[in-house]
């Protein structure tokens, strides 16, 4: 499915601020994998996502998706098959455009996107409405309102819908519930699990919630200093506790987990 082979990325190379964000990282995902990722601040989680999504090209190594080498495919082309949600719910939607227009934009990834002068049809509207109903937020009644009027949780739900309305091959969730209030966060996580399961999307999720890291998905990764230091799944994962996970981290990374938000969220 997704094969990341030995990738490295250094920022500000040759300056005092040189930072090797990801170093010699390899990761293979099976179709339908739902991987959760935890790690310290600056462990390279977001850099890994950026590398996969194409925000920059890696310095070394290669990335293959479904047998196709995408190492040097530009970001906007990768986004046809890679969906992405950020922590900031404002990043995923266009505030001055209506809900309907935002969805139409996301729908560009389909074959319809190749007809640049086509307009939003009645059929499209009915389809969008049907999808919005699944979010259970009443957004289907507000389709012609600008997205800027929605709450953070509603915007993140809409972004989730937009990135999965055409099921992507890989969905990258970068702490996509961290900036929401607890109720909304829970709702978005439930929706995420529902949609990912229904569409069999291969998924990676960064989280700072250790319980979530073990309970959601089928595989857990821990990152430190640009590497994967722990990769557990199956029986080993089932038997793992949060304390066990922290102990493992200390052992493998050589120091305690210093992500303050992780510690606070325990």
């Amino acid at each position: 499915m997704l094969r990341i082979e030995n990738i490295s990325k250094t920022f500000n190379a040759g300056t005092v601020n040189e930072k090797r964000a990801v170093s010699g990282l390899s990761l293979h995902l099976e179709p339908g994998d739902f991987v959760t990722i935890v790690g310290s601040n600056g462990a390279g989680k977001s850099t890994l996502f950026h590398a996969v999504a194409g925000g920059f090209y890696v310095d070394e190594g290669s990335i293959t998706l479904d047998g196709k080498d995408i190492t040097f495919v530009p970001e906007y082309k990768r986004s046809r098959v890679i969906g992405r949600l950020f922590q900031d719910p404002l990043r995923g939607t266009a505030p001055h455009m209506t809900i309907e227009e935002n969805l139409a934009l996301a729908y560009l990834r389909t074959s319809k996107g190749k007809a640049p002068f086509s307009r939003i049809s009645k059929k499209d509207k009915a389809f969008f409405r049907e999808k919005l109903v699944l979010l259970d937020m009443g957004l289907e009644e507000r389709m012609s309102q600008p997205v800027g009027l929605l709450s953070g949780g509603q915007r993140q739900a809409l972004t989730l819908l937009m990135s999965t309305i055409v099921p992507p091959k890989v969905l990258l969730l970068d702490e996509h519930t961290a900036a929401l209030d607890p109720g909304a966060a829970e709702k978005i996580l439930a929706l995420t699990k529902e949609i990912v399961a229904a569409e069999h999307i291969t998924c990676m999720m960064v989280t700072h919630n250790m319980n979530q890291a073990l309970s959601v998905g089928n595989r857990t990764l821990m990152m430190a200093e640009g590497r994967i230091v722990l990769d557990i799944s199956g029986k080993e994962r089932e038997g793992m506790s949060v304390d066990g996970l922290l102990a493992q981290f200390k052992e493998r990374a050589g120091r305690a987990l210093d992500n303050d938000r992780i510690l606070l969220s325990r």
Binding site: A53, Y76, K77, S79, R80, G83, R84, F86, R109
Partner: peptide
């Protein structure tokens, strides 16, 4: 940001 993430160049 959103544009790049929705396959628009």
């Amino acid at each position: 940001d959103m544009v790049r993430a929705s396959s628009v160049n």
